[in-house]
Design a protein around this nucleic acid. Structure first.
Lengths: 263, 263
DNA sequence: AATTCATTGCGTTAGACTGACACAATCTAA
DNA sequence: TTAGATTGTGTCAGTCTAACGCAATGAATT
């Protein structure tokens, strides 16, 4: 490898065309949650240059709706369309991004970035969290960009994270927890068919605390968003648990109206 | 009056200096809620030129945190500092603002706005809702800009509203309702001392439905965020209700941790 | 000064929900 | 066949909720 490898096409496009393609000063960051082996996972991108991990993100086309941009970014990154996506916060501190990082990135390729270039201005980022079906995505993982990796939510705490992406992740997790209290969750995180213990593990992982098995089941069934199937998941050295699916109609209704209503 | 009155200083500044002072393409819109005479009210600005009502808003200084910008806008508009401010959504549809409106505004003053001027680019707006003490603000209202007016939430439905500000108001109201279910509210909307019926009316107004007087009181007291005073509010031709204040410490704690926790 | 009337303070009750726990059924591995 | 872990179903006491009763109060009326 030479000291100045060729500038990747994607970066070159940003450098040359970013200015005319994208809105100035606005970016999107996606905190992509998946669930696998009883762990909540995040899809992170290894930004090889800085040796740190970053959130998958992107920019907004000049005539593109911001939410559409987020869906586009997700589609580009995961190939998935059936995704739950929620805008949860805006990150607008003036010095949240160290622009010098961008400079050095380009300098490593022997390219110089103009002083007042679009990319090294201050950026405000809109944070989205996404819930995706890990089993569905995992297939694509290997065939795509190997720089992406799933990291367990516990691991993430000990990883070097770029910019303010650590804060963004933290906020996303809090939002997810808050949502859990009044909206159904799981449809996008679990495979079509799942068992009650699997669903419970998902809740326990997100909430980071154990729940009583029997009370959980009663409450969950009480929401009326589950279909109990006449199949069981055999395999474990134990009594085979029944499989469930979400009742799409009622799930969507609960997403709109909330699970309780309280007042 | 001549056909081309003088360009107001504030507009001139936007035209001449906006470009260098503010971030490009990002604006702030504030949905300011107040409570008065058992009605939830919104502080709106009568944009005389278009004969429509708009939300108070502003732009973000080049080295200013977005949240700080929102507080600044609020301070400029209301003179109040003790405000509850919450970023609730981002509005990023490509055609949400009719830029031709800006053009005609300036043309009415005989000024022309350059074709690719900062102000007539596409803007993404960050929506905040604010809760303020109407009784506290009302004093300042007359001494400030008379173009501002409080409008009852019911009235607003029948007013002509600029751009997508109707949507923004709707979303703000929904967010406020959702918050009501798990966070305390009222500290910023009510005067220091208030009666239980007043607090109840606030809740009923936001939720747009009647609540049982006795159950409301029990629930509210159960939250443990109220101090019961040894005074009553005399004046009505009825039994004088006790006065309450919020217990600041517990109120703040509830704001952080939520009122229930549920799971 | 007594009466009226809307409103407030405090209380009750039945039903639903919650947290903690018991026990039998079932699946695979030993 | 048995052991061990896990699941399906159920119980029970305590708590919370919705709906409603009734006496006390304060100003207006007579």
């Amino acid at each position: 490898m030479s000291k100045s490898p060729a500038l990747p096409a994607s970066l070159k496009q940003l450098l040359v065309k970013g200015n005319e393609l994208f809105l100035p000063g606005i970016s999107i960051d996606c905190v992509i949650f998946g669930f696998h082996e009883n762990t909540l996972k995040l899809l992170l991108l290894d930004s090889a240059k800085s040796n740190k991990w970053t959130l998958p993100g992107g920019f907004v086309l000049k005539s593109e709706d911001i939410n559409d941009a987020a869906y586009r970014v997700l589609l580009e990154r995961t190939g998935l369309k059936d995704i739950y996506l929620k805008q949860f916060d805006v990150f607008g501190q003036p010095n949240r991004i160290d622009v010098s990082a961008h400079k050095t990135t380009f300098e490593q390729y022997g390219s110089k970035i103009p002083k007042d270039h679009w990319l090294i201005q201050r950026f405000v980022s809109v944070g989205y969290f996404a819930l995706i079906d890990y089993t569905n995505y995992a297939i694509q993982n290997d065939t795509m960009n190997s720089a992406y990796a799933w990291k367990g939510i516990e691991q993430v705490k000990n990883l070097p994270i770029d910019h303010d992406h650590g804060t963004i992740i933290q906020k996303a997790l809090e939002s997810l927890r808050t949502q859990l209290a009044y909206l159904p969750i799981g449809k996008n995180l679990l495979p079509k068919k799942f068992t009650m213990p699997e669903l419970q593990k998902l809740y326990e992982t997100i909430l980071n605390k154990p729940l009583d098995r029997r009370n959980f089941q009663r409450k969950m069934l009480g929401f009326g968003i589950l279909n109990k199937l006449n199949e069981t998941r055999k395999g474990g050295a134990h009594k085979a648990p029944f499989l469930y699916t979400f009742n799409d109609k009622k799930y969507q209704k609960a997403l709109k109206e909330g699970l309780y209503g309280s007042w």
